[in-house]
């Protein structure tokens, strides 16, 4: 086994013990998970097992006392409610309408400027799918994505620390995409930038489902039930612009 023992010299994490701050964030997450689980037990009306739902992407802000930590997943109770109420067509919300959520997202501490003030104009995009509200929100010079369910504890993810150049006219890009979870609890999320003259973006999934994304404030975003966000060849992107519609594999964006 000498060859394997020698390999230990290449270990990028060998000897690393979690720092006190890492332990504090990890323990704070455990507290939140347990708290969310109790909520789920109190709401036994779950979706039928044969149906496949999903929840939006995400990342949760940590308790302010332990600093920022991102958790790319909704807590269990919130996830169930979001899955059970998801809609393929989003409702659009104004910054004024989502100020309570925007304030809670800001309080999560996620983003490069967690102390930045919050105003309706900071909400670049806000959509509603069932019980879940998804925001793309300016935080100082940076931008975060944030999801909350029924006004509960939000989950936030930093998208940018500063200004991003917009894509060319009539095109979009993908800043992040992912899938989270297992089995029927799996869900996907995509976020990107839109260029000038783009009027809308739709996703066609491998199983034929169409997801209408939200486009506003220079961004497009969507979340949906299923694993496609983490797969290759499972998402076709239809970009609607003033000159027509172009079709792309998401891997090409």
């Amino acid at each position: 086994m000498k060859d394997l023992e020698q390999l230990a010299a290449l270990d990028p994490a060998g000897g690393h013990e979690p720092t006190p701050a890492e332990w504090a964030r990890a323990n704070a997450l455990v507290d939140r998970i347990v708290e969310g689980g109790a909520t789920a037990h109190a709401a036994p009306a779950r979706r039928p097992a044969t149906r496949r739902w999903a929840v939006g992407l995400v990342a949760a802000g940590a308790a302010a006392v332990v600093g920022a930590v991102t958790v790319p997943s909704l807590l269990p109770g919130s996830m169930d409610r979001a899955l059970a109420s998801w809609t393929p067509v989003p409702g659009s919300l104004t910054g004024e309408q989502v100020m309570p959520q925007a304030r809670r997202c800001a309080e999560s501490g996620v983003g490069s400027d967690p102390a930045a003030p919050v105003s309706p104009s900071d909400v670049l995009l806000a959509e509603q799918r069932g019980a879940a509200t998804l925001l793309i929100q300016q935080r100082g010079a940076g931008v975060i994505e944030c999801m909350s369910v029924d006004g509960g504890r939000p989950a936030a993810l930093a998208l940018a620390d500063g200004p991003l150049p917009p894509p060319a006219a009539g095109t979009v890009n993908v800043e992040t995409r992912s899938s989270v979870g297992d089995g029927d609890d799996q869900y996907s999320n995509v976020v990107g930038l839109v260029g000038p003259s783009v009027t809308g973006v739709d996703l066609v999934l491998a199983d034929g489902r169409t997801v209408q994304t939200s486009t506003r404030g220079g961004w497009w975003a969507a979340w949906w039930p299923g694993p496609e966000g983490g797969e290759i060849g499972s998402i076709t992107v239809l970009v609607h612009h003033t000159a027509g519609t172009s079709t792309h594999r998401i891997e090409d964006l």
Partner: peptide, 10 residues
């Protein structure tokens, strides 16, 4: 830490 958090949620 994001990944680890997701694992413990699961």
């Amino acid at each position: 830490e994001d990944i680890v958090s997701t694992v413990f949620l699961t």
